[in-house]
Write a protein that binds this DNA or RNA. Structure first.
Length: 507
RNA sequence: GCGCCCGUAGCUCAGUGGAAGAGCGGCGGCCUUCUAAGCCGUUGGUCGGAGGUUCGAAUCCUCCCGGGCGCGCCA
């Protein structure tokens, strides 16, 4: 992080006294102060001094800051501190000044990222399972862009493999008036495609793109396996390979992969998907991306080390390659597990899911869980549950604020706190001031699910503030409270945007 | 068998060394005042189990139990 904020500036004051980096936490218990640090506990063993004694020195030193009202030692050696009016002014002024950019633009250095996401074979419409890939990957991309990086999203599809042939044969069969082959594709969409002329792949791709655009996932580019694999002969000499059983193998296990992988098949000698991976990786890195991110479902975790291995084999820094794994989506119907198979056609398509619950609830639902957590969706309960989706709670806070600002009629917001700040006002400022740290951690961990969790907290604090305090016509406190509203609205809108959800002005 | 992920309140889940949480559900209150999709109160947990590291463990390590997903010359 290259930018300071109200919290880090406060931490810096403690650092001066402690002589070591300090992180301030917000205690869960209000009686433990506005902020707390365990730095005395961490320092005590090396200093060979009782932690509470060190903590007392720090508390005394920090208490003299104009931003600090009071500092206390607590428990085994925590320093709890209560911030002063000065700090609230600093924090809110910063929020208002930065506006929509608050918490962003901190990346240093700014780099080029490519996020490859979804990349489902165009053998059928996008399913809810792929939608998680889209929701997760797109949110990571949004976080990186907000940090200040240059980000492009790409969809990579296989237009020439065995499954694509099955898909085309299924459409052809229907065109001849026959049922699709047993191991072919059977969904209704196959019949729809059969009604058109020519190769069914382009219209399928168009439909996929429309679904994803509707889901607010936009692709900057599309990559084709058939084009990439033409360069395989050119790249083969750069690889560490050997022949076995008539096939050509990459010695990937020596470069960090779990196994060696076949690049060129025995027999007719066609290239495998892995061979195209090699070309694609070179292509990505030579197009000037500093980082190539692969968003993959947990069913691909067996190859999570493959991409880094080929980067190493080719002499690239493997740190430039990142595999983001997310756990799968399981669909149930009235408690019964339904197997998802595009071939059988008994899947839930993204478009149907979105028809049912709306884009906002769908995106929120798919990104609000940790990516390491398997998601189970009961198709029968989806609509009922979506009505209780916390996304509406958060959007409602935004709409309420918009309503206040509509009624404000030229009254201008300010950051100057009134002599007495109410608890709800202080809580809201502190909450809003968490955004920079939250966003930075969420970006670095590739964990966008922290955003909705935080957005609920912000809405929570706002709704409470709103309930207890009148904004318009509140006299000397009006400007400050309007300032709070403007800042809260901006933070909520930013959080929602980072996960691809709209922030409505009316509900 | 081996590998990856998960096990926290009735349900769905946050919480990657600091003082156990949210939403939903249940129960009881609050609208002549900027949007009640809201607010307030209450109910509810030996953080799967056992050891270990640490001043301190839901969090780190080891083992065990349970669930998901992989282990193709498919992608």
């Amino acid at each position: 992080m290259s930018k300071t904020n109200a919290v880090t500036r406060l931490a810096a004051e403690v650092e001066k006294a402690a002589g070591t980096p300090v992180e301030l936490e917000r205690p869960a218990d209000a009686s433990h102060g506005d902020y707390a640090t365990n730095v005395a506990l961490r320092l005590a063993p090396e200093a060979r001094r009782p932690p509470r004694e060190l903590a007392q020195e720090l508390a005394d030193a920090i208490a003299s800051s104009p931003r600090v009202q009071r500092a206390e030692v607590a428990g085994p050696g925590f320093v709890n501190l209560w911030v002063a009016s000065e700090w609230y002014r600093d924090a809110l002024a910063e929020l208002l000044d930065a506006g929509a950019e608050y918490g962003g633009g901190w990346a240093d250095p700014r780099e080029r990222f490519q996020v490859e996401l979804v990349s489902a074979n165009p053998t059928g419409p996008i399913t809810v399972a792929s939608a998680r890939n889209g929701a997760y990957g797109d949110s990571v991309a949004r976080l990186l862009a907000f940090a200040g990086h240059e980000v492009e999203r790409e969809y990579y599809y296989n237009d020439s493999g065995v499954q694509m042939e099955r898909f085309r044969e299924s459409v052809e069969a229907v065109r001849r008036g026959e049922p699709p082959p047993e191991d072919g594709y059977h969904g209704d969409y196959v019949r729809e495609l059969a009604a058109l002329d020519g190769d069914p792949v382009p219209p399928m791709l168009e439909r996929i793109e429309r679904s994803l655009e509707r889901f607010r996932v936009h692709f900057d580019s599309w990559a084709l396996q058939s084009v990439l694999q033409e360069r395989i002969p050119e790249l083969l000499p750069r690889l560490d390979v050997y022949e076995k059983d008539g096939a050509v193998w990459a010695r990937s296990s020596t470069y960090g992969d779990d196994d060696d992988r076949v690049l060129i098949r025995s027999g007719e000698g066609g290239p495998t998907y892995r061979a195209a991976d090699v070309v694609y990786l070179v292509d990505k890195l030579e197009r000037g991306f500093d980082h190539a991110l692969y968003v993959l479902g947990a069913d691909h975790h067996g190859t999570r080390n493959w991409y880094g291995a080929i980067a190493r084999m080719l002499g690239y820094d493997p740190e430039r390659v990142e595999v983001l794994l997310y756990q799968l989506v399981h669909l149930t119907r009235g408690g019964e597990q339904t197997k998802m198979s595009k071939r059988r056609g008994d899947v839930v398509f993204l478009d149907d899911f979105v028809d049912e619950v709306g884009v906002d609830a769908a995106r929120w639902y798919l990104v609000a869980r940790g990516h390491d957590q398997t998601i189970e969706i009961d198709v029968d309960l989806a609509r009922e549950k979506s009505e209780k989706n916390p996304v509406y709670y958060v959007q409602y806070a935004h709409a309420r604020i918009a309503g206040i600002l509509r009624n404000a009629e030229g009254a201008s917001p300010g950051a100057e706190p009134p002599p007495e700040l109410a608890r709800e006002e202080r809580d809201l400022v502190k909450r809003l001031a968490e955004l920079p740290k939250l966003v930075a951690e969420s970006t670095e961990r590739r964990a966008p699910h922290a955003i909705p969790t935080y957005a609920i907290r912000v809405a929570d604090d706002f709704h409470r503030f709103y309930h207890h305090h009148r904004v318009l016509g509140s006299g000397k406190t009006e400007a400050f409270r309007l300032g709070l509203c403007v800042a809260a609205k901006s933070v909520i809108a930013r959080c929602l945007d980072l996960i691809g959800v709209e922030a409505p002005d009316r509900m």
